[in-house]
């Protein structure tokens, strides 16, 4: 079988016999769609790709808490307040499941967190848009979580065991997230004129960023191919985007709202959804840090870390003293 991992040009070191054996075993596991587990040998590039992907995913969950946490104290009913609180708390949980998967690849959470706080690591650019109104809680649940789920369900079968297992847990919990978002929008669209306007405005703002959550078009996404060869990704960016846009095109009718896309239609000939051109320049600008609230999101995270330092330190000091007194 051909090695699943390309030789990096410029690396001329001849692999040792042991390395060749290990690579062959890895290739065989991938070849029969089995799983790679933490203590297995794996190519450096595979480890690096996964560490980056899983930790970015974790960072996205953690930063993604902010736009919604912003509305917990203002939620317009106590039931909605409970649901929103449970949802944001779940996101912290999902971040933790994912950090725990990332850590099995050999980078500890402090280091991953440091990469986030110093801007070396990225997170999903959608969270760099502000949550301006209560209806955004609906649009985030329906569109953002909807896109996330479409992305994540295939990841449950990712070749790296701990990642797949974390995704199963995340997906199970997230199925309520999308539904509660849909319900918020439905209540608003059936409510007063002002409420309906609020709902439509939120859908208008989140539609395009949600479609861009699947990443750049396939021809501009060079890393996708390798991820698919490694059985990390199962579908291409465009395939997932197609699947998603098809779902929301139907669901929006139930909501009695519209998608801000006059070009949206299903093309019977190509069996493809046609949607408007997405603004990839804006996407890149947001990733680079120039979205409306990148600076605010990062500072909030840094602040929590900074303000919590004395607490973490005290707990560690207490634990160390306990160990000492046990020894003494």
């Amino acid at each position: 079988m051909a090695p699943t991992t390309p030789q990096e040009p410029g690396l001329s070191a001849v692999p040792s016999y042991e390395e060749e054996q290990s690579q062959a075993r890895f290739d065989a596991l991938i070849g029969k769609d089995s799983r790679i587990e933490p203590r297995d040998w794996m190519p450096d590039a595979y480890r690096k790709t996964l560490t980056r992907q899983v930790s970015q995913h974790a960072h996205s969950e953690i930063i993604g808490m902010q736009p919604e946490a912003n509305w917990i104290t203002r939620a317009p009913s106590l039931k909605r307040k409970s649901i929103l609180m449970a949802k944001v708390q779940d996101e912290a949980g999902h971040g933790l499941y994912l950090y725990s998967a990332a850590e099995t690849l050999g980078t500890d959470r402090d280091e991953l967190n440091d990469q986030l706080l110093t801007g070396r690591a990225k997170y999903s650019s959608i969270f760099n848009y502000p949550a301006r109104s209560w209806a955004d809680m609906g649009a985030i649940g329906w569109l953002v979580d909807g896109a996330a789920i479409a992305n994540q369900v295939p990841l449950c079968r990712a070749s790296y065991g701990p990642y797949g297992r974390a995704m199963v847990r995340v997906c199970k919990e997230e199925s309520f997230h999308q539904r509660q978002g849909f319900e918020i929008l439905l209540s608003l669209s059936r409510g007063s004129e002002a409420q309906k306007k609020m709902a439509q405005d939120a859908v208008n703002r989140f539609y395009e960023p949600a479609l861009m959550m699947f990443g750049p078009p396939d021809e501009q996404s060079p890393n996708s191919k390798q991820s698919m060869a490694w059985n990390i990704k199962r579908f291409s960016n465009d395939e997932l985007r197609q699947r998603f846009v098809g779902m929301i095109a139907e669901q929006v009718k139930v909501l009695g709202l519209t998608l801000p896309d006059p070009e949206l239609r299903y093309d019977e000939e190509t069996k493809q959804w046609i949607h408007k051109d997405l603004n990839w320049d804006e996407f890149m600008a947001v990733i680079k840090g120039n979205g409306p609230v990148n600076a605010q999101r990062m500072e909030r995270r840094r602040e929590a870390h900074r303000e919590g330092a004395w607490v973490r330190e005290a707990a560690a000091a207490y634990a160390a003293k306990q160990v000492q007194s046990e020894v003494a």
């Binding site: 933790l96 499941y97 725990s100 998967a101 850590e103 959470r109 297992r165 974390a166 847990r169 973490r312 707990a315 560690a316 207490y318 634990a319 306990q322």
Partner: peptide
């Protein structure tokens, strides 16, 4: 089920 960080066993 997974892992987590904590300062000591009780926590």
């Amino acid at each position: 089920a997974g892992s987590l960080h904590a300062p000591d066993a009780q926590m």
